[in-house]
Amino acid sequence: MIEFQHVSFAYEKDRPVIRDLSFRIESGESVGLIGANGAGKSTVMKLLLGLLPCEGQILVDDTPVTKETLKTIRRKLGFVLQNSDNQMFMPTVYEDMIFAPLNYMVSREEAEKRVDAVLARLGLTELKYRHNHKISGGEKRMAAIATILAMEPEAILMDEPTSALDPYNRRVVINTIRELSQTKIITSHDLDMILDTCDRVLLLSEGQIVADGPAGEILRDQALLESHRMELPLSLSRRD
């Protein structure tokens, strides 16, 4: 369970980015966080992970996110960054994937098993020993997702998981996300992907939630989307 209670945040004084934000996400829900560029989607995720200090309270499983609880909370959350280069900091994909399990005291054999299982699931076995600075942007993105899956978190946050992916890998990611039983929060401008993977959508605009409801409803509401600088998902727009 994830809950924001009257959360406000500003990077620079007098330029609030998040304004009095409140919402609640139950365990097992998959939620799409959508909004125009600069709406504050990435910021919401960083706040949840305790990477930025804020006013108000954020709760994960009824535990407030504070300095003291960070370690336990971060263990529950897996975060796929918008920029995979910053996510994959070890020399090879394999070492990156094994990094979190080893830190969380999983035995090496167990960690190895996880890595192989995740790679097989995503069809990335070939990438295992490749060097992070020598794989393509899309491959890096897939590897970053694999890294987080190998961590087996209770909730997964993904910032733009399908940007930079070709249609095939995009489909692989969508199918993988759909199979995950964890709580999911996904930001994206790829509204078709959100429609395919999320039950619920939060529409963020200027740091506030302007709509919250079933994905099928919000993503069909052309007037609402357009008034916040977005368009209908391609699969729903009728071409006249």
Binding site: K46, L51, R75, F79, N83, F89, F99, A100, Y104
Partner: peptide
């Protein structure tokens, strides 16, 4: 961001 990513994975 890199350091954050390390922390988030239990470093």
């Amino acid at each position: 961001e890199l350091y954050a990513s390390m922390l988030l994975r239990g470093y």
